[in-house]
């Protein structure tokens, strides 16, 4: 692809912008659903337990892992955006900070995923 055909060059900053938007939209729509399902505690214990029970299935366990991943990426990249905006050091090192975001994300998922999957699939 010749670089002149697009305004965007696909470097780290642009991809993290795409990641920030997609994870943000995903978490927003989950939040709408999550407030509605939690509102069922106001209806009856049975209604809440029945709906929340569907979250405890293998399919939802995977979706929850994806949700936590989206939140973690959005959170760490948000901190990178603030840093790049506030400090010239961070601005000069914004590419390295992209790697810091992914490393922080990997560490958090390593701490969360095994335990969550054990809870969901009956190991713990």
């Amino acid at each position: 692809m010749s670089p002149a055909t697009t305004l965007y060059r696909g470097h780290e900053g642009m991809w993290m912008w795409v990641v920030h938007r997609t994870t943000g939209v995903a978490v927003f729509f989950f939040l709408l659903v999550h407030v509605l399902d939690t509102a069922l505690v106001r209806v009856s214990p049975e209604a809440y337990n029945e709906v929340i029970g569907s979250y405890k299935t293998p399919l939802y366990a995977i979706i929850e892992a994806g949700l936590v991943a989206a939140i973690a990426l959005h959170a760490f990249n948000g901190l990178r955006i603030i840093a790049v905006d506030r400090s010239t050091w961070a601005l000069r090192h914004q590419r390295q900070l992209v790697w810091a975001v992914w490393i922080g994300f990997a560490i958090l998922m390593l701490g969360f995923l095994p335990r969550h999957l054990m809870h969901a699939f009956g190991g713990a």
């Binding site: 929340i52 969360f112 809870h119």
Partner: peptide
């Protein structure tokens, strides 16, 4: 929120009316 509800204790399995209430 995620640490208390999804990681601590029994994780996702502990979430029911009694837990939230």
């Amino acid at each position: 929120h995620l640490f208390i509800n999804l990681w601590w204790g029994d994780g996702i399995n502990q979430i029911d009316f009694a837990f939230v209430a």
